[in-house]
Design a protein around this nucleic acid. Structure first.
Lengths: 386, 386
DNA sequence: CCACTTTCGCAACGCTGTTGCCAAAGTGCA
DNA sequence: TGCACTTTGGCAACAGCGTTGCGAAAGTGG
């Protein structure tokens, strides 16, 4: 049984990484186990029966029985009652045991440190918030994070912690966990934050951009229907995007994807801090600064329409402090632009050929100010599920 | 041995599709076989040894021996000499047998039908070109394609044909193979072109947008380094893009990705045929029409810069008739804009931390007028490799 | 009470990649 | 020339994966 090794990490087998794309039997088992776990999570409180799992995975019922037996032995899944009979033996309902493991999510914002301890469903079991001067450097930041995370773990106790997901602004390299030239904080350039935090916390750490973490967290439960595509637009002191394409977070080769703020939408427009002219971020924030929310939302909407056209995403989610200050104004303003574009396009026709011209829906990201921290925990949890 | 069944299709096992993501042993074998085939193709004339294959896949040498033995039995691979010894028994070099199978690539352009018969490396073994009025409808098109493909197969004879990849303009649904409202040819709306062609040709058919096919063909041999991301920009009578992200063609949930022409880069700019204002396509083609190639290239470059920022692509490739009329002008003009943007960005720092500000390279798509047809064949071949 | 349906686990099985071992085919030094 | 050594790569046995065949358990319906 897999629990013989390390109780913290269910034995999911060696997952093939980019360097070794060959798949062996352990990778096979890991794939199917993660798949079943993902379906269990997607099922939520309701649960799923073994036969439903078999139907959705394409595996035989017997294979599902073996896999779920392992998961139950590891404490990750449990039986939870029965469905009504359909003429024979009633199906046994299986459910994820949310509290079987925990994951830490850390949101390093420019002026605040927000930490959550999430269960396997991503729901926070505990939250801590502390002021932080991100520009003060590693000497201040590392102990602060270690202190907060320790406090979280003390408070919640119990289940093993899988690791910590850390989300922070600015350019960085997800693969190596090294920061690049963060705007307004040059001393971080080249700092190996992931490894430093891993040592400080004594946990595996995954580092990513705040927008990516948020998008990953918002993209949970797309297991059905073969994955969806959406964009999360984050408007705070800057403007960025997180892209989930075909159900997977798209980071780009150098973790540079989602630099949405400096899309030029006004050739030869007003000069932006970045040196270019007519960037969305500059136009949008200028409109906000002069109190013209309608104009700000319209500019954001036009840029969002470009993104929707280019990437064929299914929906657009909005978040970030500036948006959260006037959530409905932004949502409705962006939605109007997208609706106008869809109308111009005429009957686009969805994949199933419904034929109706339907605009891409716009919604506010759930989680509010905690969107990024929740997503950071998901950086760790995502490795378990598929 | 797998050749017992159908000699045309090497038995690669059931590949898990979106509907049944569970993986069994056949899927495992298929994955590894395709992986090895992909490396063999990437190695080209030079070939690869079994141990090199083992190193790159992460499989054991013994597993590679078993896999390559199957491939040799199917005629897909062959031994081809030896490397110099490094102190022991010299390595045996394995090579793909390009002529073992063929694939048809069909490019349905608005006024022309271009068909290629490609070998396993994607090189065309035969080419046929015929005039075509795409607007004339299925009654004209289907027999024309059938005739050309039959002539191609007669001329080349020999190896089994895996299938036909078909690339055509305008919106369509790759998953179902149905056309949507093609601009200027309303009678095609809703026509199941894939299935109709499959029946007419007696071959499996894969249907996709011309830009997607081109991008897929241009993205061959990214097997090393875990896949790359690039964009193919096609400027003809319209403007479109094909996106290869993380080594895979990105189509979007409804095959709508890559609608690059109607990116708005000039808010409240000149009205475009699509109803919006300030679309790249309108601005760019207007500049071409008045003979101002510099302005056209600059507008295209600005839009390309937006795309590079948003998707972090590694390179940009240009193609299409309008570009091919003045290839260097466009290439250099677009490259200049990207270089300017990169310079403004300062030292972006590549993933390996070289620290130098390096612009994303711009190049002309190879293949010239045949780029799309070659890519169409790749729609079929891609299923064999990984 | 019995026939039937449906769920689900045990045991045997086929196939995968892996391991242990050995022959083949070179190099390099005495 | 001969011997020790290194490296390649196939054969055979093996562990572990999902699959198949079958039977027990647990319901429904007449």
């Amino acid at each position: 049984m897999s629990s013989d090794n390390d109780p913290a990490l269910p034995d999911l087998g060696t997952r093939p990484d980019a360097a070794a794309p060959g798949a062996n039997l352990l990778a096979l088992r890991g794939h199917n186990t993660a798949l079943v776990l993902g379906l269990l999570r997607a099922a939520g409180e309701e649960g799923v029966s073994r036969l439903e799992l078999a139907g959705r995975t394409g595996l035989t019922p017997q294979a599902v029985s073996k896999i779920t037996a392992r998961l139950r032995a590891d404490g990750l899944a449990a039986e939870a009652g029965h469905r009504a009979s359909t003429g024979g033996k009633p199906r046994t309902v299986l459910r994820l045991v949310p509290g079987a493991r925990h994951a830490v999510g850390v949101h390093l914002d420019r002026d605040e440190l927000l930490c959550v301890l999430a269960d396997l469903t991503g729901r926070p079991a505990a939250v801590r918030r502390a002021p932080l001067d991100f520009g003060a450097g590693a000497g201040v930041l590392l102990p602060a994070v270690a202190r907060e995370v320790a406090a979280l773990r003390d408070a919640a106790g119990g289940p093993p912690v899988l690791g910590a997901g850390v989300a922070c602004p600015g350019p960085l390299d997800h693969a190596t966990g090294v920061l690049r030239q963060v705007t307004g904080a040059p001393q971080w350039d080249g700092f190996p934050l992931r490894d430093a935090l891993a040592e400080a916390l004594g946990l595996p750490v995954v580092l990513d951009k705040d927008t990516n973490a948020a998008a990953l967290g918002l993209g949970r439960a797309p297991v059905e229907a073969g994955g969806t595509s959406f964009a999360y637009l984050h408007l705070g002191t800057g403007l960025g995007a997180g892209l989930v394409l075909d159900g997977d977070l798209y980071r780009g080769p150098h973790t540079g994807a989602g630099e949405f703020g400096h899309q030029v939408v006004q050739l030869d427009g007003a000069r932006c801090d970045c040196g270019r002219r007519g960037c969305v971020e500059a136009l949008c924030l200028a409109a906000v600064a002069r109190g013209d929310l309608a104009a700000a939302a319209r500019v954001l909407g036009e840029a969002a329409a470009n993104l929707v056209e280019l990437l064929d995403v299914d929906r657009v989610l909005l978040g970030g402090r500036t948006v959260l200050a006037h959530p409905e104004r932004f949502r409705d303003g962006v939605a109007r632009v997208l609706a106008d574009h869809a109308a111009l396009r005429g009957r686009t026709g969805t994949a199933s050929g419904s034929g109706a011209a339907s605009a891409v829906p716009v919604a506010l990201a759930r989680g509010g100010a905690r969107t990024v921290a929740d997503g950071a925990a998901e950086l760790v949890l995502a490795a378990l599920f598929r």
